[in-house]
Design a binder for these strands. Structure first.
Length: 439
DNA sequence: ATAGGGTTAG
């Protein structure tokens, strides 16, 4: 390979790595392929394929991905585990079934731990906990990534106690040491189970002993302590973080808000800005929700304006939701409804619930009746089953008996009562035989 | 060149 040739290929590869959309990635990829000699001693083609697959999966087109897949087979690039795992990951984001199918066809020589871990994370996202666990059990040389993928799967399935027990199993039965990603995962699990405050402390102790406190762990510790009700510990971690970034500030502001310290939350926000830390969209979600809870309508308006005009952030459905809630809580139903009518994103269940709850409280049925058909046409998940009760109450109060019956039927179809019951059973499950003193 | 994690409105 001549030198200029190689340089050009290297530059293309760098550009490909940073490519953000599928079409530019594919263009760069084919340019690069044309310049490569058949021998390709630096396996540029393989690297390029791995890079190109990332923007390809975010394009969300399965036919496009299959097309590239066919190309990879023709050019024998799938033999590289790096390419195979990238392709598998791309498939798993678009079609778990296709990912599973591909995995079965990967030859043993290519199927290294990277590939297997991608398959595990695909199962964790798309399948049930038990199937993921069976797959995990069959992995021969599980590494820290396999364990933390599985651990996160427990937590995302709300099996917190089982997850923490699983974590203990790792510490007892393997020589693997938890790295910071796994510790973040564990702390997230602790945060979702308020009863496990001692466990959160013991993880903190472990982190301090290992001198593993990193920027990420600081955020997770603040969040975890706040969620388990120890705002004092959260603050202590917060003040000790050497260089506080947006995430630390936001986690602390959320913690303050969670514990009803609205003034402190807003003061923290102002202090953060004074120190030159740029708030992000989550920071604004936090302060706007504070305004809703504290009844600060004007303040909320100002924050919203600040976000758009000074920080140039595009409001998301969360921010609009906060604005609806601010107006709804303050009894300004027309303003709340105006936000919904004029916002640039589709309203979701949370937003409607916020508006409808205020309609019920204020016995304002005009707006409620205007929007209910639209709300009922939406996909209401079991988790939001309570919305049916709210809607039914509104119809009762408005004397619309036919509609009451209609909603009752919907509730039966969706098993609203049954699901509530099973949720409470799950929530009431003992947090498990976890001894915080160990690990 | 490839794998796992983090704060978000009712």
């Amino acid at each position: 390979m001549s030198l200029p040739h190689q340089l050009a290929a290297g530059e293309l590869l760098t550009a490909l790595r940073g490519a953000s959309c599928a079409s530019s990635a594919l263009r760069l990829y084919s340019l690069l392929r044309i310049r490569l000699p058949p021998s390709d001693p630096s396996s540029f083609a393989g690297r390029a394929a791995a890079f190109a697959l990332k923007p390809l999966s975010s394009a969300g087109s399965l036919p496009l991905l299959s097309h590239f897949h066919a190309h990879l087979i023709r050019s024998n690039l799938l033999a590289y585990p790096q390419v195979a795992s990238s392709l598998l990951r791309s498939y798993s984001l678009l079609s778990p079934a296709a990912a599973h199918h591909l995995f079965d066809q990967i030859p043993p020589a290519t199927c290294n731990l990277f590939v297997v871990n991608v398959m595990l994370s695909s199962l964790c996202r798309s399948s049930d906990l038990a199937s993921a666990r069976l797959f995990f059990n069959d992995i021969p040389d599980k590494d820290i990534v396999s364990w933390s993928t599985m651990l996160a799967c427990y937590f995302s399935n709300k099996s917190v106690a089982d997850g923490l027990a699983f974590f203990r199993t790792m510490t007892f039965t393997t020589t693997l040491a938890p790295d910071y990603v796994m510790l973040v995962t564990v702390l997230t699990g602790c945060a979702s189970a308020g009863l496990l405050q001692p466990f959160c402390r013991s993880i903190h102790g472990y982190i301090v002993r290992r001198q593993a406190v990193s920027m990420h762990l600081g955020t997770s510790l603040i969040d975890c302590y706040a969620k388990v009700g120890r705002l004092d510990y959260a603050s202590r971690v917060f003040v000790r973080v050497p260089s506080r970034n947006v995430m630390h500030w936001t986690a602390m502001i959320c913690g303050m808000a969670m514990h009803l310290h609205y003034d402190e939350a807003i003061q923290l926000f102002e202090e953060m800005r004074r120190q030159g830390v740029r708030p992000n969209e989550m920071t604004f979600t936090a302060v706007l929700s504070v305004c809703g809870h504290a009844g600060l309508v004007e303040q909320g308006r100002e924050f919203f304006k600040l976000m758009v005009e000074e920080y140039d952030l595009e409001p998301t459905v969360h921010h609009y939701g906060c604005m609806v809630d601010i107006f709804a809580k303050a009894g300004q139903l027309e303003d709340a409804y105006d936000v919904i009518k004029t916002m640039r994103v589709e309203p979701n269940i949370i937003i409607w619930t916020s508006l409808l709850a205020a309609c019920k409280r204020l016995k304002n049925f005009d707006i409620a009746m205007e929007v209910l058909d639209e709300v009922l046409a939406m996909e209401i998940s079991d988790e939001n089953g309570g919305l049916y009760t709210l809607i039914s109450d509104l119809y009762v109060m408005a004397g619309r008996w036919d509609d009451v019956l209609k909603v009752r039927r919907l509730m039966e179809e969706h098993n609203v009562r049954k699901n509530r019951w099973s949720r409470s059973v799950r929530a009431g499950k003992p947090p498990g035989l976890i001894d915080p003193a160990v690990s």
